[in-house]
Amino acid sequence: MASTIVAFELGGREVEVMVKPMTTLQSALRDQLGFTATKEGCRQGGCGSCTVLVNDEPMLSCLLPVEDVAGQRVTTLESLTPTQGLHPLQQAFLDANAFQCGYCTPGMTMLAQALLDHNPAPDRGDITQALTGNICRCTGYGPIVRAIEVAAQAMHAGEEGQPR
């Protein structure tokens, strides 16, 4: 079948990709747009390493045909990362050493961002529950849960400090 052009918003910018039908968002991001923070662990929905946000909801980009995000707002780890310094989640992951190989980290970070968008003050149980679809083979999860707890507090404190 012929290729089509799909346009969507990626980190605040309009992008276009030319794709064959059933091309995944993961492949468009990594192979066409060079956004390689989104990882490719299993390509069948089993590991969560490819988690991105579509209109602020976490999605597995390996299962998502890129046509489905036409006109939608996609956020990857690249767009979460500020131009200067680190996002509070990134800083907390770094401080807690919440990785070894780092392969799960982008997916974990995006998932954590989605969790904090919905629930700015999650308890440990909420965080653990939220992570169940994402596999980490290295850390035993403890440092990741602790990092998200710390980031939630930091982001919460940051917001309280802002003038309304």
């Binding site: 299993c42 069948q44 089993g46 590991c47 653990t128 529950q129 992570l131 169940t132 596999i135 035993g140 999860y141 403890g142 990741i144 849960v145």
Partner: peptide
């Protein structure tokens, strides 16, 4: 395959 291979997830993790 390995995607159906059972492993403990975050809910099963003990205190380490």
């Amino acid at each position: 395959d390995f995607s159906e291979y059972l492993m403990p997830g975050p809910l099963e993790m003990p205190e380490i």
